[in-house]
Design a protein around this nucleic acid. Sequence first.
DNA 1: GCCAACGTTGGC
DNA 2: GCCAACGTTGGC
Length: 159
Amino acid sequence: MPQHWLFKSEPGVYSIDDLKRDKKSSWDGVRNYQARNYLRDSMKRGDLVLFYHSGSEIPEAGPGIAGVAKITREGYPDATALDPKHPHHDPKSTQAEPIWMMVDIEFVERFPAVVSLEELKGEKALEGMLVLRKGQRLSVMPVEPVHFEHVLKLGRSRK
DNA sequence: GCCAACGTTGGC
DNA sequence: GCCAACGTTGGC
């Protein structure tokens, strides 16, 4: 059984449409230990990912879940942390002992319209969902299967 | 090991 | 642009 996750991205930086265009992408740049542990230890090939748009600079494109992706490659060393010229370079991370991890994902589907954070908060069925917790800043987090299924239903039910 | 200072995230 | 929440850093 595949597990379920939620990845946050600022759509101005990388959106579901960018992923649709690219078909696949490496999920690099995560610099939080708890998130790193999920990337390194828990994510498996075939796991499904809710693609979340956060803090958009475009006011009418508020935060929400924009679509679905799938994990195609399990955790491996984050190349941006090892590259001295990269803005996300971390001198503490080395080839021999990499600190930060990334996974690869591929595009699965884009919802006809983003399921807004406001709508998610109003759903009884999503009570307790991690991303809805106040002060929840993890960029990568697990999602319970029932919550995942409910979000899918919401996302597919609109035009 | 405590905790103040600081930086970042992200909703509003 | 503001600010609450949180993680990290560094002085002691």
